[in-house]
Amino acid sequence: MSDITTPPSCSDVVVPAHTCTPGGGGGASGPVVPVTSEVVDLTDGSWTLYDPDGLIDTSYGTNGATFDSGTGFTTIKMAGLAVGDFKYMIAALNNGHFWPRWYRAIDGADNLKTVQMTTEFVNDATVTPWARSICLGVANDPTSTDPNIMDGTGGFFRHGGSPSNATQYGVWMIASQTSGSNLANSRGVATVLRSRDSLGSGAFITSRDDTGRAIASGTRNSNFNAGIGAGDAVPVYHILGIGTYGSGGIVAGSLVKMRFAQTSSIIDFTGA
């Protein structure tokens, strides 16, 4: 892991443990902690870019990204890729994970805690599409190029690059994904659950803009316990990655413009 010299200032909302007090016939409702999502800003100083093969144009904005605080949209500029490879695909196992990613620590989280992360992706379709994939989630080692050491799970997006292709929103598990694919897709919500050294599983819902109603839902299981070691606790990190849809290249100057939002909870079930 590369050093993080500046402590990240996470603005995540962490849901504290609470006890459930049963109501006594008066119709008292159970405890609920309303959560406000964080709109992700890669330029806020909490994120570190790891880009082993230089796919991000770091002369653009702050380390390759700009953030519009009015709309919440992030724009990322690509440096280009002459020859594609499976290693730049977020949802492929072959040749490792060499796609660029931003990462930051999650305060108080480790692989043994119960960590639940919910993300929302909204794509800006006015930007010229290219065959891209995107993830926002949790990883044990975000700077590893080995998918089974990175151990990442989270929300997922991809698009084939042609205006006739449907956008796909779903969940990413290590080096695989399941998503809803529909031309009417406007956004996707996903939740991943990890606990006790398991990478757990995820669920997603896609929805449309005109009615605001859901189009599809689905799930994916990681089928994977990280196996770091009995009793060992290691920190886990937020990760936001940009990759290719397939094994093709990237035209220099290509943009990603999306609104990313997330909440992360470290849940303590021992406090009851």
């Binding site: 949802a91 492929a92 072959n94 695989s176 994904q177 998503s179 809803g180 694919s181 689905g218």
Partner: peptide
């Protein structure tokens, strides 16, 4: 049911 896009590996490791 809705069609899903799935990228994965089979039991024999084939992607």
């Amino acid at each position: 049911a809705q069609p899903e896009a799935v990228s994965g590996q089979g039991v024999d490791g084939t992607s």
